[in-house]
Design a protein around this nucleic acid. Structure first.
Lengths: 332, 332
DNA sequence: GAAAATTAGGAATTCGTTTTCCGGCAGACC
DNA sequence: GGTCTGCCGGAAAACGAATTCCTAATTTTC
């Protein structure tokens, strides 16, 4: 009840109140050792009565586990890594673990520094994430590591990714299912793996309905607007545009509106990312692919917990995306 | 050189190599105690040679300091708290401290839980931040706390805020300086303190040029668009709109464009937040107020470090904002 | 009814570092 | 030449929990 009395409660206090030795109290509270059930219960009650919470420092030192994991992100702006972070934090806090945040700002020197300090703090494991889906060099540490969003270049490492191809395919399949027959794809720079993967999957899925080639540009509304002019000139029959990002899709919608094309009656548009500020503000709201990044973060944390518990995962796992259908493809 | 040899290096190893006792080695490395400079140097070299990094757990236990601070945020989406977090993390990592992340998702039960676990981990201090500028109830802990972005309701607590009135005033002053004579203000819900503060400052600064009343609505582009119609009807002479957020400003710009008004020739528009995805994507790019949240995070961390070091701050500090001038107020 | 097996819990050790004493040694002073 | 003072550095005691023995006390077994 009363918060924060003067001296903090140690396990010896609990032990004294329960009439046992500190070692016994520890066993009772951690469900280890051989104790009579009533003794266990007595200690437990004493702990509760005193509001005892084990001191993390002592615990870490003696148990060898710090109940802490490090999260290394290269992504300062955080568009993608924030949801992953939050998901991971959520999953970890359920397991009484805490998350140490390290933002490398894409600087290898800083990364190296952080790896050292995490090791010095004896974290139980590390989650590595980044802003791009490009595989990255693994970090060399003697503790479990899970790569989230961007895989390790070592295929034996545990990596968890978004199924980009599946995501793009689902959007295009939806366009086909709703009767579209002339589908183009507009996306980001060709040097970005995610752009290429989505474009390839879109083209494959669209089959005869694909109006290629995929247009590579930048991840911006401006490019979306510009791409519309190119597309309409090349494919007068165009009735759908699948985009590599919500920003591009929003630009596409804007330009189509300016040109008097009705969405989705004349042309349907799909985005990618389900970035609410883009997808919902777009006129009309965008049908788009949700990356479920928070779930990805949760899973990454779960895999790490497994590894810490002695059941390591190996190899790459791809997480399914979720198609969110809104007015840009379906007249209401 | 070689990374991660088998056994980790302990301070006793360093001491042995340097030919001193562990206690002496500790003093040498921490610049405490009375040691001959050459002894200190010898130990230091031994530590370097062995690649020694002190074990955080032992250190925390004996020194009483964990070199860790908790960051409690109520803001899952993170629009505002992310930059603060990154700034704080940046400042802390420079001081060899690490940041434990706690996202309460605005749930008091979760918050209480996190406070307990942070206390159990013996963090040296806590930074509390949120997504709204409304003052919030303080947390009751026996360690230093700094409130960032949203103040504590207890004026004696250390809080660091954005100078919202100054920010809004700077935008309006800029409009006046560039010759505008009929300025309206469109902002978010009246129940939001930040909306009211900005509106009041805008009205005061505009003086005779103010075309009131300030329009309260929601923080959305849609509301920005709707507000334009109201404004033009009420004030045909309108030549500037100061907005409470970049989203609103973007909506305002869109609607003005649709109605054929030229920006900034006919009407100048200012935003608020400098949220790049809005401010830069807007046509034309927005003149807006940057909250300098990362700097705010850095300062919050600095204040916390001071408090941990025995020099606590008291009361509320307001950080200046920065006006970013772009094409929406200045023809190029 | 004695030996063996099982159970419950205590004492002491461990984790790795910091920190508090305390002792020795050198130079200074009377 | 003996005490006094400063300077170095060592020994040992925290710090707080977990864990490894180990010893009684019970129960089981023959």
């Amino acid at each position: 009840m009363t918060s924060g009395r003067t001296g903090v409660v140690r396990i010896t206090d609990v032990a004294a109140l329960a009439g046992v030795s500190p070692g016994t109290a520890s066993k009772a509270l951690n469900d280890t050792g051989q104790l009579r059930p009533e003794t266990r219960e007595r200690v437990r009650r004493a702990a509760e009565q005193l509001g005892f919470t084990p001191d993390g420092r002592g615990r870490a030192l003696s148990s060898g586990r710090s109940y802490t994991v490090g999260l290394i992100t290269t992504d300062s702006s955080g568009r993608f890594s924030i949801p992953i972070m939050l998901g991971a934090e959520d999953a970890l806090s359920a397991g009484e673990m805490a998350l140490l945040l390290c933002d490398t700002r894409d600087d290898p020197v800083r990364e190296q520094h952080y790896v050292r300090t995490l090791l010095a703090r004896r974290v139980d494991g590390i989650i590595v994430t980044g802003r791009r889906t490009e595989p990255r060099a693994p970090i060399d540490v003697p503790i479990p590591v899970v790569y989230a969003f961007s895989a390790s270049t070592d295929p034996a490492d545990a990596s968890i990714l978004v199924d980009d191809q599946g995501g793009a395919a689902s959007a295009v399949r939806h366009l086909l299912d709703t009767g579209r027959t002339a589908i183009a794809h507009v996306t980001g720079p060709e040097r970005h793996r995610s752009a290429v993967e989505r474009a390839v999957a879109a083209a494959e899925t669209a089959g005869d309905a694909f109006r290629g080639p995929a247009l590579y540009g930048e991840w911006s509304e401006r490019w979306g607007r510009a791409a519309v002019d190119l597309l309409l000139r090349a494919h007068p029959d165009l009735d759908a545009v699948s985009c590599g990002s919500d920003q591009i899709a929003r630009g596409v919608c804007e330009r189509l509106r300016e040109l008097g094309r009705r969405i989705p009656d004349d042309v349907a548009v799909t985005g990618y990312d389900n970035w609410d500020v883009m997808a919902l503000a777009c006129r009309p709201p965008l049908t788009t692919v949700d990356l479920e990044l928070e779930e990805l973060g949760r899973r990454a944390a779960g895999m790490l917990l497994d590894a810490v518990g002695g059941r390591p995962h190996r190899g790459t796992l791809e997480m399914p995306t979720r198609l969110v259908i809104r007015a840009s493809t379906l007249p209401d």
